[in-house]
Design a protein around this nucleic acid. Structure first.
Lengths: 204, 204, 204, 204
DNA sequence: TATGAATGAGCTTTCATTCAT
DNA sequence: AATGAATGAAAGCTCATTCAT
């Protein structure tokens, strides 16, 4: 699936990939370590040698998602004031595009993340810690910036964030839920979502 | 939590309520029948007398959601051509309002539904069967109707549906995820969501 | 083996007896719950229904030993000042006799107790709590009493206790270790032990 | 801890010491080879290179105790007829003193020995083989010798042995069990034990 | 109808041991 | 000689489910 950056042995990668797939398909609690072992073609003991516990394995599946996404987001956001983006739309398009590419490449991992977050408070905390904490601060500044420039209508900043996030999230979740039976024209659909977002957020 | 409509004994209601809460909190696979029995203050055997199996219990938790919501939705939709709703906005407002009330009242049940749908194909089928099948057909007609009236911009009907659903879903999910720490002004937030939807969907 | 006093089901008794035998023979850590289940002719799950954990089972094996022995000891000790025992020897003989009978009847349980005490601090604490705390206080008074009467030589009271206990303990342990190959004439051996004790403790 | 006599590499010594400590603290069955490896700061495989199996490690921990103690005991005993000991007391004092020093120096090893003997028949056999077999024969002669000299009362020789051993054992075990919380004046206590032994064994 | 003791399959995890490096 | 990744059997324990009462 992914497993970039870190030095992982073949076995470790096999375990992570098997776990990712199975967690996505049947949920964390619904997957047994013996299934994972069988799918990864390793002995069951090997899983525990490397990941300590089943929960540890879940964390290892999810944490790259969190650790990798935050820096990517931050880098993009910083471009705003470098004048790389005169128009909000350009920012949002670029942003969704990059993020979507990443999410699509790691779709399964992402599915695990959003499926398991409700059941594991530590995950939620870790997520808030890494994503929200400083990203949100930065995003607030940027939205204020575009509101001043008159590209986004007057509305509480947090509501703007919520709307953007929920539109994008809704877009992605629809994609994830539909996925298999999809006759979903990704490009066109994305265009419409963005267009809709822009018009919806525009000042009167 | 709910358990309207049907004649259920006290014990049955207790079991359903306990199961709903626990499934929402820890997931279906993460909840044991003995936990449910303890929380409902009944013997373990009693659960199986009434609900056959753990899966049967899940279905019993979720099915009111599906069975009750569909007729409600249909009734609303029929009002459109009775001229009860001249403006899309009125329809959507009324619609979201009613549905939200219901969802909020049965939040926990709803959480179980959306959390478990990815893991149980039958649920998805049942959902599609009851909600999509004829509701979607009806909705398509209605959207076409408002597009003809010039209240919704030109766009593939299914995309409109997707956008509405994803906006509303995004709204609700945000609410569910945020819920506890929320200083979330529900009314205002809902207003903004609708306003945003209308502007976003309006013709050029 | 024993299991007096308490209302225990047949299964519970079977489990306790099997566990006692196996713990004595192979030690707590060296015995598996599946062995116990097989020997007790119950399902493995049944053990955990009743005793929560393997450790809980150990405690249930041992605690009667501790709970039953303390009251017995105290009762005997109280007789001293009721003039039931003019001579130390009578006390010690009666005491060892009663206790030995009990220990012999519950030899296996006792073996488990002394074998496992070094590995489970809570056991040691529980033992001290129940046996030592007030028994030792009482014993001190009694030894002082017999020292005043000139039947026990001058020596720190705690050393007297230690010597008595270690002699008796040594006696019992020898018995336990030898047990199977024993051509050990219990009565005569006990006589000699007591005689030896009396002479050894007598004043100059 | 010990590891005298034999040529052992640093690693081997480290393993033996770690094993001795852990076996004493948690018992043989309660200690895992990986714990030992960690404590000895070697790889898990190294243990098996040197000691073949976990059981082999136990034997290697215990055998010095048996192999070293027997010659020491025999040497002492031979002195009896060399007139080095006119009085039993001198013999016993010297004997306990030497042996106790050794046992104290190797307390942990000794604890392992007495804790594990009940669970490993080979150990018991080995012990009997090395200690009992010819030592006991020699001891019998010596006790007969002192009985003839009128320093030990008339009593079956084996009972005398048992009493001595159980007194000494009782003494040592008390020491081992009490050890940590001890305000135990070793010298005085030993004196009293010997005095008690002599008086108890003396002829009428 | 309701109970809860009993089950045994299956779960996560640990273990002693092996072997390629 | 020493390592530690890998193993798979077995450990302790939990589970959904059954059934005699």
């Amino acid at each position: 699936m992914s497993s970039e950056l870190l030095k992982l042995t073949e076995k470790q990668k096999a375990i992570l990939d098997a776990a990712t797939d199975l967690f996505a398909e049947k949920g964390f609690a619904g997957t047994s370590t013996s299934e994972i072992a069988k799918k990864a073609d390793v002995a069951e003991g090997t899983i525990f040698k490397h990941f300590k516990s089943k929960k540890g394995l879940l964390l290892s599946v999810i944490s790259p998602m969190i650790k990798v996404i935050a820096p990517m987001v931050k880098k993009d956001l910083n471009k705003v004031f470098d004048k790389d983006f005169e128009e909000v739309e350009d920012l949002i398009r670029e942003f969704i595009d990059n993020r979507t590419q990443f999410v699509v490449k790691n779709m399964t991992m992402f599915r695990v993340l959003i499926q398991e977050i409700p059941f594991h408070p530590e995950l939620k905390e870790q997520f808030i810690e890494h994503i929200s904490k400083d990203v949100v601060v930065r995003v607030r500044e940027i939205i204020a910036h575009y509101q001043e420039k008159g590209q986004i209508g007057e509305m509480p900043i947090d509501s703007v964030i919520r709307i953007i996030v929920s539109t994008v999230f809704g877009h992605v979740i629809a994609k994830l839920l539909i996925i298999d039976e999809a006759e979903w024209d990704d490009k066109a659909e994305l265009d419409r979502t963005i267009q809709f977002l822009m018009k919806g957020l525009a000042p009167e």
